[in-house]
């Protein structure tokens, strides 16, 4: 009898601990969001979107940083996602089951979790050292390298979910694989591939480490891809660690902006996946 009670108590203790762990996890998310909102809202104003980053002690906005982040994320996605989608297509279609595909898949998974600062060093070595100066294009390339594994992985997964019957039907009509891929597989996997793109954008728009020594930072308005460019993450890094109240308040506002953008992207991606699931079930 006492053994039974002991087992029940042990069960209760561990289940309670697991509830506590979940509560701690949720509390961390809530605490971070709460801090961002309370600290960030005070810095929110129209000047954030209309003025440049200020000199030390001055006041201003984040316009050049927001623009720089948008440009580098955009260029990074434009370069990285086609490569990721094409490579994912190779893994799911042409290379299915081949040795090369297995190796590429493995290496891609390693790249997916590799530290982003290493990517920054890589681009620094091959681009910044050669060009002898920091540039926005180097930053965009570093982001592209980070975006490739994300899009590759989702593209392959989503193409694998397309029912084999659709592919066979297209082949039976005499279509070559390229035509089947473009006209049947991509449309069928469209929302999945878009999800991958959203996740990739969410991932790279908050990356700081790879931009530190590629795009660097720029206090002024610059649209040249060939020179240093301001960007939100590095501005947040620099301003948050500064002793100036105005800078710190801008850093919080920037942090709030970037987190909202990323959470919206992540939630949109999840909704797309949820929207996709019924068709996935029907396809099997």
């Amino acid at each position: 009898m006492s053994r039974r009670i002991w087992r029940k108590i042990k069960n209760g203790i561990f289940l309670a601990l697991s509830c506590v762990a979940t509560l701690i996890g949720l509390a961390c998310l809530a605490a971070i969001l709460w801090t961002l909102i309370t600290h960030g809202v005070s810095g929110m104003s129209h000047r954030l979107f209309t003025e440049m980053t200020p000199p030390p002690g001055g006041s201003g906005g984040l316009l050049n940083a927001i623009y720089g982040s948008a440009v580098m994320t955009g260029v990074g996605i434009l370069i990285g996602s086609p490569i990721g989608v094409l490579a994912g297509t190779y893994l799911a279609e042409y290379g299915r089951g081949s040795k090369l595909a297995t190796v590429v898949r493995f290496i891609n998974d390693v790249l997916l979790s590799a530290p982003s600062i290493i990517v920054g060093l890589f681009i620094y070595e091959i681009l910044v050292v050669r060009m002898r100066h920091f540039s926005a294009i180097a930053g965009a390339l570093a982001l592209a390298v980070i975006a490739i594994p994300v899009t590759l992985r989702t593209t392959e997964d989503m193409l694998n979910l397309v029912p084999a019957g659709m592919k066979d039907s297209s082949a039976a009509l005499g279509a070559y694989p390229w035509r089947t891929t473009l006209s049947v597989l991509y449309p069928a996997a469209r929302s999945g591939i878009v999800t991958g793109l959203l996740l990739a954008i969410a991932r790279i728009s908050g990356e700081t480490a790879p931009l530190l020594f590629t795009a660097l930072n720029n206090q002024f308005w610059s649209t040249s891809l060939n020179g240093p460019m301001a960007n939100l993450p590095v501005v947040i890094f620099q301003f948050a660690l500064s002793p100036y109240k105005d800078w710190q308040s801008l850093a919080w506002a920037g942090a709030l902006l970037i987190t909202i953008a990323i959470l919206i992207l992540s939630i949109a991606a999840r909704i797309l996946i949820a929207y996709l699931s019924p068709s996935r079930g029907a396809g099997r």
């Binding site: 998310l29 605490a31 971070i32 801090t35 961002l36 969410a202 991932r203 728009s205 908050g206 990356e207 700081t208 480490a209 993450p233 947040i236 890094f237 948050a240 850093a251 919080w252 942090a255 970037i258 987190t259 990323i262 959470l263 992540s266």
Partner: peptide, 10 residues
């Protein structure tokens, strides 16, 4: 999904 710099500043 929260970027690492946010964890840092927090």
């Amino acid at each position: 999904a929260v970027p690492s710099i946010i964890f840092g500043i927090w």
